[in-house]
Amino acid sequence: MNKRPIDIVKERLDTVPVNVGAILRALDVDVRKDAELGEDISGEIRRDGERYIVSTSGDEHAFRQRFTLAHELGHFVLHKSLIGTGLDDSKMYRSTEAGDFYNTAIKLAHERQANSFAAKVLMPKPLLKQKIEEMSEGDSKPHISELCDLFQVSYSAMKWRLVNLGWAHKVEGIV
């Protein structure tokens, strides 16, 4: 019996940092980092026959590339039927005419779902909780920058995740 894509993703959320590239490859999706995608494009997912290819812009920080990979993974898992020939995402994670694959089937709600999915993949709740507890000593709380480095995500991604989990009070350095 074939596993559902979401089950393949969930099986691989047990290490810090989560290896998003390995998840994509386990789903038989090719990964191309450091692609030349155009000035305003962070990432894309496109079809090549029966296969899919996810690319990230080589002009962006490695942590942002990881988020972009996870965002495109979200589209693959959640919105595969809407991808068509492809979908590119701007730096604001919106399908845009600036890329090769302006996709009007992908709405703002889909982009938000892909962002939320990416945050959950890169910062799984059980692992984030475990690391916060391990890094806390007495009254001392971990600094958000330590968690960013550990999970290899940006400050804004980590802050969003902590706020949405109701855990902002468990760390220092959130402004």
Results as ranks from 00 to 15, higher is better:
Glu60Phe: 08
Phe63Val: 09
Asp89Ile: 05
Val16Gln: 01
His75Phe: 08
Asp28His: 15
Ala114Glu: 00
Asp14Leu: 10
Asp59Ile: 08
Asp88Thr: 08
Arg64Lys: 15
Arg112Ser: 10
Tyr93Asn: 13
Gly21Thr: 08
Phe117Ala: 09
Asp88Leu: 04
Tyr102Ala: 12
Val20Gly: 04
Val31Phe: 09
Asp48Leu: 14
Phe63Arg: 14
Glu11Leu: 12
Ser55Trp: 00
Arg46Ile: 12
Gly38Phe: 04
Gly84Met: 06
Glu72Gly: 07
Arg25Glu: 15
Asp40His: 08
Thr104Ala: 14
Gly49Phe: 08
Pro124Ala: 00
Gly84Phe: 06
Leu122Trp: 11
Ser90Arg: 00
Ile23Val: 14
Ala114Trp: 01
Lys129Gly: 00
Leu87Gln: 03
Asp100Trp: 10
Lys120Arg: 14
Pro124Leu: 00
Glu111Leu: 05
Tyr93Ser: 08
Lys120Val: 03
Pro124Tyr: 01
Gly21Leu: 03
Phe76Glu: 03
Leu27Tyr: 07
Arg47Trp: 00
Ser81Tyr: 08
Arg51Ile: 04
Gly74Phe: 09
Ser90Thr: 02
Val29Lys: 01
Thr15Gly: 06
Ala109Asn: 07
Pro17Asn: 10
Gly38Arg: 06
Gly86Pro: 02
Leu78Ala: 04
Glu97Met: 06
Phe101Gln: 05
Arg64Ser: 12
Glu97Phe: 03
Ile23Met: 06
Glu111Thr: 06
Ser57Phe: 00
Ser42Met: 07
Lys33Met: 13
Ser90Gln: 02
Ser90Asn: 02
Ala22Trp: 14
Asp40Tyr: 09
Lys10Met: 12
Gly21Met: 04
Arg66Cys: 05
Arg12Thr: 04
Leu13Cys: 01
Arg94Ser: 04
Arg12Ile: 05
Glu111Ala: 10
Asn19Tyr: 01
Asp89His: 09
Lys107Cys: 05
Phe117Gln: 10
Pro124Thr: 01
Ala105Pro: 01
Gln113Phe: 05
Leu24Glu: 02
Leu87Asn: 04
Lys120Asn: 14
Thr15Lys: 15
Arg112Asn: 11
Glu44His: 04
Ser116His: 09
Asp34Ala: 11
Glu72Asp: 11
Ala114Asn: 00
Ala62Lys: 14
Tyr102Thr: 09
Gly49Pro: 06
Phe101Val: 06
Val16Phe: 01
Arg94Ile: 02
Asp40Thr: 08
Glu60Val: 09
Arg51Ala: 14
Gly49Asn: 07
Asp48Tyr: 11
Lys10Phe: 13
Val77Glu: 02
Ala62Gln: 13
Met123Leu: 02
Ser81Gln: 14
Arg46Thr: 11
Thr68Asn: 10
Pro126Ser: 00
Gly38Ile: 05
Gln65Asn: 07
Pro17Tyr: 06
Thr85Cys: 11
Leu27Cys: 07
Phe117Tyr: 15
Asp14Gly: 14
Leu27Asn: 08
Asp14Gln: 12
Leu13Ala: 00
Arg66Trp: 05
Leu37Arg: 07
Ala70Val: 03
Arg64Tyr: 12
Ile23Gly: 06
Val31Tyr: 09
Leu69Pro: 04
Asp48Gln: 13
Leu24Trp: 03
